[in-house]
Amino acid sequence: MFEVQEINAEHKDLIHDVAYDFYGQRMATCSSDQYVKVWDQNNDGKWSLSSSWKAHSGSVWKVTWAHPEFGQVLATCSFDRTAAVWEEIVGENPGPGERGTRYWVRRTNLVDSRTSVTDVKFGPKTQGLILATCSADGIIRIYEAPDVMNLSQWTLQHEVQCKPSCSCLSWNPSFSKIHPPMLAVGCDDTSAATGGKVFIYEFSENSRRWTKIETISSITEPVHDLAFSPNLGRSYHVLAIATKDVRILNLTPVNDNNSIQSGITKLDVQTAAQFEDHLSTVWRVCWNITGTILASSGDDGYVRMFKMNYINSWKSVAALKAGLPTPPISQTARYIKLGAISQPREVPWH
């Protein structure tokens, strides 16, 4: 079960993203109020504001942590058409009896986009320190910091033209060497006529280029978020997509002769699950660290959780909701089981 606790974020506008760090003990939020806030968990499990700073001159859409191996590093992207990399610094000359104050400095500002940068994600650690951004005009950019000790130097490695209005991207986090670097990109373009809204790109070692290897034609509704499941040992990839519903796709690399010759992976795409539980637009999908539980949130105000059972079929396992929106402070989460069941499709926690 869950215990609910409200954290007063004191952002002055909508919070667009929240991200735990690698260890789950820090948290970053970003908002339209152009601020990024970092929260730390103390030993009692209480969260407190650690830093807060104006990061951009436009809405900050996404915030993401780099692997701690590279330091305490954040990347943000914004409506102001830039993406930025931030590093936490412990101040010199601490006062007597005090620890050095920590603050965040902007290490770089990536200004290549001519439109709003809608998502930013650090690549898997095995690739080094790399960053992918996508922008509203549909360009995916891959940056790399050749020297991981120097976060102020980033080179634009690749620029891939995708369809306009990219809204989200996700790296395939697989650790396997046989899986080449892979990105999934989603578009939130509203016209159904433009076809598939999710694209899978793969980096080909031979041509040193990113190539589109798959368009998920089954998804024609605007895509708001997508996330590859952490792949700790699966031979196939699992991609969760937030569109008008929650979609879970299995992407299995097919090793036939064609793909070996061309050096381009062919994917066998299967829809593993499709959940319409939210009955409304789904905004976010998020995996737990082992990739066994998927959480999604939608306009119905619920966080719903899905889990794969032992026969490989996905089931809804929980729906979380805060108390009524007014007053916003509530002591306990309302579970469907306890609260009023207003929708027949709601599944209680088991």
Binding site: F2, A9, L14, I15, H16, D17, V18, A19, Y20, Y23, G24, Q25, M27, T29, S32, S59, W61, S165, S167, D188, H224, D225, W283, R284, V285, C286, W287, N288, I289, I293, A295, S296, S297, G298, G301, V303, M305, L320, A322
Partner: peptide
């Protein structure tokens, strides 16, 4: 188009949700 929600799960399985 701005995403009004955020969800993240940490190591312990805590879910943080902004809406």
């Amino acid at each position: 188009k701005a995403n009004p929600q955020g969800v993240s799960i940490n190591n312990k399985g805590d879910v943080i949700y902004t809406y």
